[in-house]
Amino acid sequence: MEVVRRLRPPERYAFAVSVRPLLVPKHDPCGRLGEDGLWLAMRTPAGPASLHLARAAGELIATGHGPGAEWAADRADAIAGLRDDPGDLPTLAARHPLVARLAKTFSGVRLPATGQVFPRLLRAVLEQKVTGKEAHRSYRAVCRHFGEPAPGPAGLLLPPDPAVVAATAYWEFHPFGVEQRRTETLLRAARVADRLERCADAAEATTRMTALPGIGPWTAAETVRYAYGDPDAVSVGDFHIPNTVAWALAGEPRGTDARMLELLEPFRGHRGRVCGLLALGGIQAPKFGPRMPLRSFARF
């Protein structure tokens, strides 16, 4: 089955920058972004699907493949970030010159909303307390192990089925570089994935997720930011972001979560978006001390 939908992006819409966060860097078994556009595999309520988004003559052509093609095509504008409305961001951004400049520079960037919680939650759990390289390596291994071929010609894998993940013993994740603590958190989330997918909004999903042992504000924010397109989701507990915010907004080389939230308060409603703008602008606090080492739990 194939379903095609034509979308009209806003002026200055930055397609690649907007959708890139939906994929892990370098290689994602469940998606691809290239000259031919974005390919994304998904498990929809109607069945497996893959979605292709491509620019063409000022339009965005969305093509859904597979049993879930209609669901994917109907959701395409949200996945592309076209339902995201920055609203009063320019007014709020004017409260700080750097934020104002970045908001203008990246005014074409929109926040995607996939409408799917578990795939993003899986990635967020794997990213807990490890380096990005470690997490992404584990994510690829997990997807290759649990993934099934997705519909369409892109050769993608479907994201892992929560029911299959939930039925897996924790030690089977060790070869993927995932230790018992993160694995058990992931298994708990997989067991209630259906309930998580039925949440009405980011607030309800955050409440349900953080009620699970092993899932805190950081993991919930990393999930709802792209599952629901929540522009206010702040990753409290992040290793870098408090320092980045403190440096960018107050010239302080180090910051706590409390200080970060204090500095972001004038931008409430768009606090997560402001953090994203700082990242897009390449803003980083001064670095001190050794880097976090890379580890391999598969060898433990």
Rank of each mutant, 00 (worst) to 15 (best):
A100H: 12
P90T: 08
E134I: 04
C143M: 04
R110L: 07
V164T: 15
A80K: 11
P86G: 11
R95G: 15
A100C: 01
D85P: 06
G147Y: 06
D161P: 02
C143N: 00
P90Q: 05
G66L: 04
A141P: 02
A72S: 09
P160C: 12
A141D: 03
R137V: 12
L157T: 07
H136E: 15
H96S: 06
A103R: 05
V99E: 00
P90F: 06
V164E: 12
F146P: 05
G81Q: 07
S138D: 00
A78D: 14
T168C: 05
W71Q: 03
L156S: 11
A80D: 07
T63G: 04
G115V: 00
P67N: 01
G64L: 01
L121M: 10
H65M: 06
G87R: 11
H136P: 04
L111E: 01
V130G: 09
L98T: 08
W71M: 01
V165G: 12
P86W: 02
P149G: 14
G81A: 11
G68N: 03
V164D: 05
H65I: 02
V165P: 10
A72Y: 08
A124W: 00
A78Y: 09
A154M: 08
G152Q: 03
L157Y: 12
G87D: 14
T131P: 05
V130K: 07
P162K: 00
E70H: 13
P159R: 10
E148Y: 01
R101Q: 15
H96K: 05
S138G: 04
G66Y: 07
A72V: 11
G115F: 09
L111P: 01
L102W: 10
L89E: 11
T168Y: 04
Q128Y: 03
A93C: 01
G115W: 03
L89Q: 12
G87A: 14
D84F: 15
G155C: 12
V117D: 08
C143V: 14
V130R: 10
E134P: 06
I79S: 04
L102D: 13
A154N: 12
E127P: 02
A135Y: 09
A78W: 13
V99Y: 05
A113Q: 11
A80E: 07
L89P: 09
V125I: 15
E70G: 13
D161E: 11
E70M: 08
G64W: 02
W71A: 09
V164K: 14
V164H: 11
A69M: 08
T91C: 01
Y139R: 10
F118N: 10
D88H: 05
A69R: 00
G132Y: 02
D88Q: 06
R75F: 12
E70S: 15
F146H: 05
G155I: 13
V164L: 14
R140N: 06
